[in-house]
């Protein structure tokens, strides 16, 4: 197992490098202009000067190598310096990955935004799993019952209605008509007392609910299918014939085995939490990582787009490895040798 993990980690390195190159090429070749949002009255020669100062007109290879150096050397060194409080030589001249739009280090902005993304997207994910597993199991156990039919219908709706629609509907119902929840998320809110906690919960309610609806729908379908499979198995019949209670049969025997694929699914989707929910963040102005990426794409901010998408790619690769390893731990039948 240990050997397997190490091997997977080592093969991940070239994968990640290839990914970084492909992302860079795609982003760089796309027709976008960092001066594109400037008022039309700003003349072309001034725009040209701005692009030159940013280095936007440098050859592809130069830009790519610069980015590699900034991301893989400067950023880790800087991280070590700030966390350990030591200074490496050349720290003054080191150039970090700098956004073309904000002229500030990209990593700092990502770090600043991570909390709100994790809070909103993370808690919706957590809630989704919490609801989906029992619903999925019960639906499978009482297949074709009223609960199963209603549940299936609700989950199909949740799965097929896009978040930009449910989000808008929620705003119209809960913000415009009922005035219960704010439609604008306040990212500067700090929870210090019961009142600010109330505010935080209120502003999280709509984005979290919208996202939970979607995650729940997806997860519960998986859980249901997997539980159905297991309930047909011989070992369930054996357990019942041993005289175990239905409760023990379902929770101890069926559910445990059914959750193996679900756990893998959960692990694979964790990078998605970091990526934020692009559309939902935009609708409710949560302004997390997802919204940051959208702004960067619109603004032609190449270093930001490159860095954010690359971090997602790394997370996807890592959690794929985690999922594979977890699978081996959870299911003794799977061996890696």
């Amino acid at each position: 197992m240990g050997k397997y993990t190490i091997r997977r980690l080592l093969t991940a390195i070239p994968t990640i490098l290839v990914i970084s190159f492909i992302i860079f090429a795609v982003v760089d070749l796309s027709p976008s202009d960092p001066t594109g949002n400037l008022p039309l009255t700003i003349p072309p020669e001034v725009r040209q000067k701005i692009r030159e100062a940013l280095g936007a007109d440098d050859p592809f290879a130069v830009k790519y190598v610069k980015w590699l150096q900034q991301f893989f050397i400067s950023e880790p060194l800087n991280f070590l310096e700030t966390t350990l409080g030591i200074t490496f030589p050349g720290s003054e001249d080191r150039v970090r990955v700098i956004s073309w739009a904000t002229r500030g280090p990209v990593i700092d902005i990502i770090a600043e935004r991570l909390p709100q993304t994790l809070w909103v997207v993370g808690s919706s994910y957590f809630l989704g799993v919490l609801i989906a597993v029992p619903v999925g199991v019960y639906s499978a156990y009482r297949q074709y019952s009223i609960f199963d039919q209603v549940g299936t219908f609700a989950m199909m709706v949740g799965f097929s209605v896009p978040t930009f629609f449910t989000g808008l509907m929620f705003i119209v119902i809960f913000s415009v008509n009922l005035k219960w929840f704010p439609s604008v998320y306040d990212t500067t809110l700090v929870v210090t007392d019961i009142e600010s906690l109330q505010q935080q919960l209120r502003q999280m309610f709509m984005p979290v609910t919208v996202l939970t609806l979607y995650t729940t729908a997806q997860m519960s379908r998986y859980t249901r299918a997997s539980t159905l499979d297991n309930l047909q198995q011989d070992y369930i019949r054996t357990a019942r014939s041993k005289g175990l209670t239905e409760r023990t049969v379902v929770t101890r025997h069926a559910v445990r085995n059914s959750l193996i694929p679900v756990v893998t699914l959960i692990a694979l989707q964790i990078p998605g939490i970091f990526a934020g929910a692009l559309i939902t963040e935009q609708i409710f102005r949560v302004n997390g990582i997802g919204q940051y990426l959208i702004i960067a794409i619109q603004g032609g901010d190449l270093p930001t787009v490159q860095t954010v998408t690359f971090i997602f790619a790394v997370l996807v690769v890592i959690f794929n490895i985690v999922a594979d390893v977890l699978y081996g731990i959870l299911d003794p039948r799977v061996t890696y040798s």
């Binding site: 705003i171 913000s175 415009v176 005035k179 704010p182 439609s183 604008v184 306040d186 500067t188 935009q282 609708i283 409710f284 102005r285 302004n287 919204q291 702004i295």
Partner: peptide, 22 residues
């Protein structure tokens, strides 16, 4: 002064004209 960004034009209009949040 709170100068908040993000979202889209339509929801910004809604926040001022309908919900009164901004």
């Amino acid at each position: 002064v709170v100068f908040k960004g993000g979202g889209d034009a339509e929801s910004a209009a809604r926040a001022v004209l309908e919900t009164g949040e901004a």
